[in-house]
């Protein structure tokens, strides 16, 4: 698969791991430009990248939450205070009693079995 690099250079995608390194439905953490990013592979083979920092506790723990679904939406739950986010958009679906706070997400692509994070429009940095 090839792609057309159109994004700004600083938004280059980072290869974080092989798809097979990810346990389905259990998050991992990758360091992307110094930020901790939760990488989640769902049951249907999709891969998502979402901020690992829990805005409610400040702890870097989102990747350790349970993965599941709400209706058709793939979700992850904070293991600290149980807020629920949409893995696709970072929207907070349930603030668990607090005001909902969304999480940042990163674009993800799987190329030749490698998981690439970042690069808004798909720039690939094979570094």
């Amino acid at each position: 698969m090839t792609s057309t690099p159109t994004a700004r250079p600083e938004a280059a995608a980072v290869r974080v791991c092989a798809l097979t390194d990810l346990v389905p439905e259990r998050g991992s953490v990758a360091l992307v430009d110094g930020a901790q990013v939760a990488i989640v592979r769902t049951h249907d083979g999709q891969v998502y990248a979402i901020d690992n920092r829990d805005p409610y506790s400040g702890a870097q723990i989102i990747a350790r939450g349970l993965v599941g679904t709400r209706g058709d939406v793939p979700t992850i739950v904070s293991p600290m205070y149980k807020q629920i986010w949409d893995l696709r958009t970072g929207a907070c679906l349930d603030g668990a009693g607090s005001d909902p706070i969304a999480l940042r997400t990163w674009p993800v692509r799987v190329v030749d079995g490698a998981v690439l994070v970042g690069g808004a429009a798909g720039a690939v940095d094979r570094g």
Binding site: V23, P24, E25, R26, D54, S57, G58, A59, Q60, I61, R64, G65, L66, V67, P79, M80
Partner: peptide, 21 residues
């Protein structure tokens, strides 16, 4: 196996999560 994916973080790492992670 798959059972690892259905455990709460505490059971998953067999320790108790504290407020700072």
């Amino acid at each position: 196996g798959e059972r690892a994916t259905i455990q709460d973080t505490n059971d998953f790492v067999m320790a108790n999560l504290q407020k700072d992670g």
